[in-house]
Simulated scan of single mutants.
Amino acid sequence: MSIKRVGVIGGGQLALMMAKSAEKLGVELVIQTPNKDDPAVTIAQSTIFAPINDAAATATLATRCDVVTFENEFVDLAALAPLAEQGVCFRPSLEVLSPLLDKYHQRCYLQQIGLPVPKFATLENVSEPWQFPLVLKSRRHGYDGQGTFIVKDADTLHQLTNAGKKTSFLVEEFVPFVKELAIIAARSPNGEIVTYPVVETQQKNQVCHRVIAPADISTELTNLIQEMAGNLLHNLQAVGIFGIELFLVGDRQVLINEIAPRTHNSGHFTLDACEVSQFEQHLRAVCDLPLGNTSLRSPAAVMINLLGYEESENDYLVKRQQLAALPNAFVYWYDKKTSRLGRKLGHVTVLLDSNTDAEEVAQIIESIWYV
């Protein structure tokens, strides 16, 4: 079946950044999103304005497209199950998403298939005293630092859990990592798997600020991470792109932190630094097209998130022009109408030669943006 229309549940910047790839592949995008000013509305061939977990709206979406995919993981699988039974083609499938959306279930699944993860438990099943600091995470709907807490003592743990009595929490050991790493991997319906270069991510308050590609790690470690990514997608029988975040512990050990069953912030550098971007790759996978070349176009690249630092209605045009004037810089703006603290408003990718220091370039970008 030739797929010409892809339905996307979610209309944020991840859907927005699929637009050029869709045009290149001759694919039309149909979006389900709640708000008329959501970023992807401007690029969609048609839009259904409804919450992303509105199954009736998704049923309508499915009549307008050949396959349905996801921009985020905040969906209601039980509500979508009848649609899948009626023949709606979801990629990734609901069966693939099922063990991943709840962080506790995700950890259990990774452990079950033999992939290394930090020590973890549900809050209700902590059977022994844990050493502080520890990490407390909402099992559902946490992102960009929301729902994740570094807990330093028992009093703080008690306060947080009392404040979130209606929230189910995952408790995990605090990992004294050397670096945070990530890899983007894709799998097609026929089982073809490709991986992108392993990157280093630099976080502040559990929000990604910088991505450096490729990560400064050994070939042996790179191969291990690529193998882990391939094993995960093979076991899931997944279709589409997946972001996999990891902790580097010591020189050779890695632990999987989280899986995102979608395009991912750690892969935004691929728009300009790789032969085929993560967004094109995702569409290739869900449309059952041959997967593309994941190699870098330059020796290295650095991606900086442009995060909100104030409450404002501002398009920051002057700053964006200054950033775009930097050598080998590519600026992406997500067309969000308001800025607030920590909100992802855009990103900048700079292609680097072998003699350019990524840290220096990042500091220049941040000095322009945050001054």
Rank of each mutant, 00 (worst) to 15 (best):
V361M: 12
W333Y: 12
A56S: 10
V96N: 15
L341A: 06
E220G: 07
K165Y: 14
R210A: 03
C274V: 11
L246M: 14
M303G: 01
E172H: 05
V88G: 11
E275H: 12
D102S: 12
C89N: 14
K103N: 06
A186V: 09
N35R: 15
D353P: 04
L246R: 02
R340V: 04
N328Y: 04
H141Q: 08
L25Q: 12
M17H: 04
A56E: 09
L271H: 02
L83M: 06
V331R: 00
R139P: 06
C287D: 09
L101I: 13
C108W: 01
S312D: 10
P261G: 07
P189S: 15
L97G: 09
G267P: 01
G145M: 03
E124K: 12
Y143E: 04
V175M: 09
R252F: 10
R139T: 10
R320N: 11
G10M: 03
N355P: 00
V194D: 05
C208T: 10
R262Y: 05
P118G: 13
P290S: 06
L306I: 05
L80E: 10
Q86N: 08
R343T: 01
K152C: 13
G12N: 00
V6H: 08
F247D: 06
Q321K: 07
I225M: 08
L291I: 10
W369E: 01
R187M: 13
K344P: 01
K20H: 12
N257P: 06
R210E: 09
E23I: 10
I368W: 03
T219Q: 14
P176S: 11
G308V: 08
R210P: 00
I31P: 07
L221W: 02
A215H: 03
F90H: 09
E227S: 07
V68W: 10
V211G: 01
L16F: 06
I364E: 12
W369N: 02
P299R: 07
K165S: 15
K166G: 13
D216H: 12
L101A: 02
K4S: 15
Q112Y: 07
L236I: 05
K152R: 14
V199R: 00
V135D: 06
H268N: 05
L170K: 07
Q202P: 00
G267A: 04
L255I: 14
D251Y: 05
A19K: 03
F242G: 04
S21I: 04
Q203E: 09
Q111E: 15
P133E: 06
V30I: 15
G243P: 03
V117S: 10
A81Q: 15
Q13H: 05
V135I: 15
E313Q: 15
H264M: 10
F90D: 08
S354G: 11
Y316V: 11
S2I: 10
P39K: 04
G267E: 00
T58M: 01
L83H: 12
L134Y: 04
M228G: 01
G145I: 10
G11K: 13
P189D: 13
G342P: 00
E359Q: 12
D357S: 15
T167I: 15
I3A: 14
A22D: 07
K103Q: 09
L224A: 07
L123P: 04
H282I: 11
V135S: 04
T47H: 03
L123A: 14
F70T: 06
L341I: 09
P214M: 01
A15M: 01
T63P: 02
M1V: 05
S93I: 13
A238P: 06
I244G: 02
N328G: 01
N205T: 06
